[in-house]
């Protein structure tokens, strides 16, 4: 069967800005001056990194931003920032995204941004947000048009970044498994999502409560088999 035309674009984050109620607009107009001042600062901040031709922050700009923030580009905080901005394309920030993110963080300079990062991290790690963030990380890694899966190599890196701090042992073993097995070359979103559920729900490391007759993706069945064999050999 041929792959289907992507039928679900609805999951994209580009929701139209909610139409504001008119009277709210009036109330706001009082403080609109201050707000627009802030807007100006955010935009100026944006232009510091943006490519003037494309009017976007491009990979080179992102790199600059990272070094100004004293962050490695693979640092999870960069991904968190992208999540906050709801950035769609890896390595790029549009002006809208930039405004969305920075306004939400209430910052308009590099120093304020730097200071807001620990708070952002705390926010992301709240369970409700984290699930969304985890999913976002996968979607953010889909670079090509109509790409639905990420290759094993990317998946391993991404897992390290996103889940490494919470489930280090799980991630390390799963990575080892992914490198060792031959059945899968790519990971789809369902497998990705279910690995997180697996980390949360299944007792490590005897997997006694893992039931392969449940709807777990096969890749996790294989992982558990592989783990059991590994431990029995020890």
């Amino acid at each position: 069967m041929p792959p289907r035309q992507s039928k679900r674009k609805a999951t994209k984050t580009g929701d139209s800005t909610p139409s504001k109620l008119p009277h709210l607009d009036n109330i706001r107009s009082a403080s609109s001056k201050a707000a627009s001042k802030k807007n100006d600062n955010v935009d100026e901040f944006f232009r510091t990194y943006a490519n003037s031709l494309s009017d976007m922050i491009e990979p080179e700009g992102v790199e600059r931003l990272c070094s100004d923030l004293n962050l490695d580009p693979t640092d999870v905080k960069v991904l968190m920032l992208a999540w906050k901005m709801k950035a769609e394309k890896q390595g790029y920030f549009t002006q809208d995204e930039w405004q969305r993110g920075l306004k939400a963080l209430k910052v308009d300079t590099i120093n304020k941004l730097k200071k807001s990062l620990p708070g952002l991290e705390k926010e992301v790690l709240k369970p409700d947000n984290f699930e969304d963030f985890y999913l976002y990380a996968f979607r953010y890694s889909l670079i090509e048009d109509k790409q639905k899966c990420i290759d094993i190599e990317t998946a391993c890196i991404l897992l390290d970044i996103v889940l490494g701090s919470q489930f280090q042992i799980h991630v390390d073993l799963f990575k080892e498994f992914l490198q060792a097995q031959r059945d899968y070359k790519v990971i789809n979103m369902d497998q990705w999502v279910n690995f997180y559920r697996f980390c949360k729900e299944i007792r490590f490391s005897d997997f006694e409560d893992y039931d392969a007759s449940q709807a777990w993706p096969l890749i996790l069945d294989n992982f558990v088999d592989w783990m059991k064999e590994k431990t029995s050999q020890c």
């Binding site: 041929p2 679900r8 789809n188 279910n194 069945d221």
Partner: peptide, 26 residues
């Protein structure tokens, strides 16, 4: 069973199926 599971995985990738958000067994 493994073969069926594998096909389900594949059909999910190809957007024929999706897992229910609330109940992962559905």
């Amino acid at each position: 069973f493994k073969m069926i599971k594998k096909r389900i995985e594949d059909l999910i990738t190809r957007d024929y199926l999706e897992r229910d958000k609330e109940n992962p067994n559905l």
